[in-house]
């Protein structure tokens, strides 16, 4: 088995190295990928079109908004699938694992987490809202927000975290995130544009066409952040307790 698997591995490796010698040099500004009209358009016109300094955010939420929307849907579907696979797979309180002990949550750890969690959550909002001018955005902010809930579940137990963010609420928030994203897209359709054509939102926002795109991107990022937060926490809650939603690590 192991010797046989080396045959496809080395075959693929030979072909890839053979192809790699034909690539443009690393960091060559004249390489086809970097010199293409699409990339040059994104770099040159982002400031004029949307007034967003961070090109990655502008391309992510505006120029390629359709792509990002369905990536968010993929995250949502993966979270739902984990729930569907693990729900009721074991009876509550039936099997006791070695790591499930009755010890009280540690005093030092819980008090430190009490201090840290608000800071983490504020940082998550900062990352989400500042995605336009610095690295960040909906995905990163959402993951950091989800991590703050995972930290609560790690230091107390899963029930404490679920009392603050129950699984039903999780799925509600995740669905709401996608609805916010799609809602902004459909709203711009009602205003006469195309799906996710944020510039049309200037009719309801008291700003110019460019700034309408700027602000609509923030709304879209909030939708992405909601979905990612909820799904990351739901993933941890289900996987750490085999779907029992009690005890945890």
């Amino acid at each position: 088995m192991k010797a046989a698997s080396m045959v496809p591995v080395f075959l693929v490796g030979f072909l890839l190295v053979f192809a790699a010698t034909d690539f443009p040099e690393w960091g060559n500004p004249q390489s086809p990928a970097s010199d293409s009209p699409v990339s040059s358009h994104f770099i040159g016109k982002t400031g004029v079109d949307t007034e967003v300094p961070n090109m990655v955010t502008a391309v992510l939420a505006d120029y390629r908004g359709f792509d990002t929307m369905f990536e968010t849907v993929v995250v949502f579907i993966a979270g739902m699938a984990v729930l569907a696979i693990l729900k009721n797979s074991v009876k509550k309180g039936s099997v006791r694992r070695d790591h499930e002990v009755d010890a009280e949550p540690d005093l030092i750890v819980t008090n430190m987490v009490r201090l840290i969690v608000p800071v983490i959550q504020i940082f998550a909002f900062y990352v989400l809202a500042h995605g336009h001018v610095s690295p960040g955005g909906g995905f990163q902010g959402g993951v950091i927000m989800g991590a703050s809930f995972i930290l609560i579940a790690l230091s107390w137990d899963l029930e404490t975290a679920l009392a603050r963010f129950s699984l039903n609420r999780c799925m509600g928030v995740a669905a709401a995130g996608i609805l916010i994203y799609a809602g902004i897209g459909i709203f711009s359709m009602f205003l006469g544009g195309e799906f996710l054509d944020y510039a049309e939102l200037e009719r309801v926002l008291p700003v110019s066409r460019e700034m309408a795109r700027y602000h609509a991107m923030l709304g879209v990022e909030i939708g992405v952040g909601c979905t990612v937060t909820a799904i990351m926490f739901a993933l941890y809650a289900n996987l750490s307790s085999e779907g029992k939603l009690e005890g945890g690590l």
Binding site: V59, D67, V75, F139, I231, M232
Partner: peptide, 18 residues
Amino acid sequence: NPLPHVLMLTAIVVGVAT
């Protein structure tokens, strides 16, 4: 070039979900 960054940013998050 921002385009590869955008494509891979979403791929990482979808990767952890899968």
